[in-house]
């Protein structure tokens, strides 16, 4: 079937099977091979692109689902020829090794910063939870996203949910429960 898709601001007319995934159309029809496929089941995030401002896995989305929407891929980040701040910070912070996860990481991070310009480190890690990297241990990636948000120092950690739960909140009527499995 014929599809009109808007990718990186350009309208493309492509011919694809109805069950073609967005990633297939991007890579095979448009030659936008920056979007990578690492698992094919929406677990590794290498295929992440932004659709209407939200990060999505293009390997578990059909091309037809993107009809009428704005798709942004890694190739669209430096469309003017100059690296986006986020890309620049990935370079400076040593956030790139083999680089196969990088486009997806960038797009998840971009979507985060579009919605939340000053994310905490926990926000960053949550936003990148669906992007696996086997090389870096994530530290430099988190640092790069933080730096791209203009926060050069370690952001204040919000207490984790667990700490929040264990804190002695005064809630009328509900006693906190502590599980104690006995001593050693």
């Amino acid at each position: 079937m014929e599809l009109l898709l808007t990718v990186n601001g350009t309208v493309w007319e492509v011919s694809a099977r109805p069950t073609a995934r967005l990633i297939d159309v991007l890579r095979d029809q448009m030659g936008l091979s920056g979007t990578k496929e690492g698992c094919g089941e929406g677990e590794c995030g290498a295929c992440t692109v932004i659709v209407d401002g939200k990060a999505v896995n293009s390997c578990v989305m059909l091309a037809v689902q993107a009809l009428g929407k704005e798709v942004l891929t890694v190739e669209g980040l430096a469309a003017s020829g100059e690296l986006d701040t986020l890309q620049q910070k990935f370079v400076e912070q040593g956030a790139v090794q083999c680089g196969f996860c990088t486009p997806g990481m960038l797009m998840s991070a971009k979507a985060l910063l579009m919605a939340n310009p000053l994310p905490s480190d926990q926000d960053i890690r949550t936003a990148l939870a669906g992007n696996l990297c086997r090389c870096t241990g994530y530290k430099n990636i988190v640092a790069a996203v933080r730096a791209a948000s203009g926060q050069e120092t370690v952001a204040m950690e919000v207490p984790s949910e667990k700490e929040e739960l264990l804190a002695d909140l005064a809630v009328p009527g509900l006693a906190p429960a502590k599980l104690d499995e006995g001593g050693e």
Binding site: N57, C59, V60, M61, L62
Partner: peptide, 26 residues
């Protein structure tokens, strides 16, 4: 087809026949 995060792989499985896909995302 709702979000498709499970369905997309399911309909592409070899031998799986889908005559009509109703995309609800619009």
């Amino acid at each position: 087809l709702a979000g498709g995060t499970d369905l997309v792989n399911d309909i592409r499985r070899p031998g799986r026949q889908t005559d009509l896909l109703i995309d609800l995302s619009h």
